[in-house]
Design a protein around this nucleic acid. Structure first.
Lengths: 228, 228
DNA sequence: CGACCACTTGATCCCTATCAAAAGATGTGG
DNA sequence: CCACATCTTTTGATAGGGATCAAGTGGTCG
């Protein structure tokens, strides 16, 4: 599915039509921006390889990470409400994306009711992600936040055919901290703790989950819920 | 606009059509549920009077407040992704709502492209609200959170033709705390502090903003952003 | 090779949760 | 209409989790 740059659950017979409006862009380098807050909203994107983060930068320059986007995951719907992006999307590593012009997508969707509904579902899913993120930030210990984060990543990698127990984090500790609402020092310390308890092994950004059950314990039952 | 049970920006000529699919339900009493997490998703709602909160109740029974919904504000889109509601909507006081069957809304939208786009915008706006809530919870002091909350409420009341400086909170301190990710004691103390500094006056749930500028200072510039 | 980040680890402090208790509210049934 | 039960709100005391400040190490890129 994500080879076709289409995130999820599109009926087979509609794929051909969609393929026509998908543009494959050249890879963008690490650190560069796919779009910036304030840019006109013209398209949604799906990474084919690499990874993105979406961030909100406030007036004081602090940046809050709103989401991470692995291959096959949607980016860019934040611009739909006002025709301008409210977030900035930045490549965490060299990343190639598929671009789907929104006007064209709407035109196609108008002809195919099933696709129209899928589009609505897709938006709603983005909403649920934000909601889950919210629940993560509200009233959980730093330990639980990181545990939930690791489990969420594990699931997402697994869904994409990668190992759920050993993966490379595309993002820095600083980004993780900004995503979880913590200080980067705290995140670093937690990784150390988890390692000392033999729950995980780390080597730089390579993470191995050694005792998944224990991680899930720390995460609470909430880990069973939807992927972040 | 909210007299017609339609939240925002619907072109005049489409209103007549929409009126046909809007059902006005009898008022529901305080504490009762408009829908529960797990319920089938069949409609979206707009309060005409009263107020609602949407909550996520986890396995341990703790409840996180995801949003408050004043008259004219949309409720229920959380169910779209999976055809089941992920949240519970509870009346904070006696509340009457308009119900818009989603199948019917989709059918109408299919005939009117402009409406289709509005619907997308509406969903995206819900997404932005969640995102703002997220930024609120991440890395802000309790003081700043409450200040932002008060300013957001002020704006929303103003948009509905009520006084922006004196209003009755429909929700308890406990609900506010659960929304802001704080303990209810902390919220109570903050109200006291704000009152002691002559920023606000309170009498139970009646709040008067005495020094809006100072409240905005505490909130940081972020208060200038979108309504929560 | 040097400058600049990312990361780790340590020490300290402060904000806010938690525990406790009392004083309003609110609502119910007799 | 009052009395009792229950919930909300306030205020106090205490403790702890995580932020902050600081310094050193390691990795990366120009």
């Amino acid at each position: 599915m994500h080879e076709l740059c289409l995130p999820v659950g599109i009926p087979q017979n509609d794929v051909a039509i969609l393929e026509q409006i998908v543009e494959k862009s050249p890879p963008i380098p690490k650190g560069s921006h796919l779009f910036n807050a304030g840019d006109n909203f013209s398209a949604i994107y799906v990474p084919r390889s690499g990874a993105l983060k979406t961030v909100h930068v406030n007036e004081e320059g602090e940046q809050a990470v709103v989401g991470f986007h692995l291959p096959g995951e949607l980016v860019g719907l934040d611009g739909l409400a006002s025709d301008r992006h409210s977030l900035t999307a930045e490549a965490l590593e060299t990343t190639s994306v598929c671009r789907v012009g929104f006007d064209q997508l709407e035109a196609v969707a108008r002809k195919i009711p099933a696709l129209q509904r899928q589009l609505g579902r897709l938006m709603s899913k983005e909403f649920l992600k934000a909601e889950n993120h919210l629940l993560l930030m509200g009233n959980r210990t730093a330990e639980a936040r990181l545990a939930i984060f690791l489990i969420s990543l594990s699931k997402r990698f697994e869904e994409r055919g990668f190992s759920p127990v050993e993966f490379n984090l595309p993002m820095s500790r600083i980004d993780i901290a900004a995503y979880l609402g913590l200080a980067s020092e705290t995140v670093s310390r937690l990784f150390t703790n988890f390692r000392d308890q033999a729950m995980i092994a780390t080597e730089g950004r390579l993470v191995t989950l050694l005792d998944l059950e224990q991680v899930q314990n720390l995460a609470g039952e909430s880990a069973a819920e939807g992927a972040l």
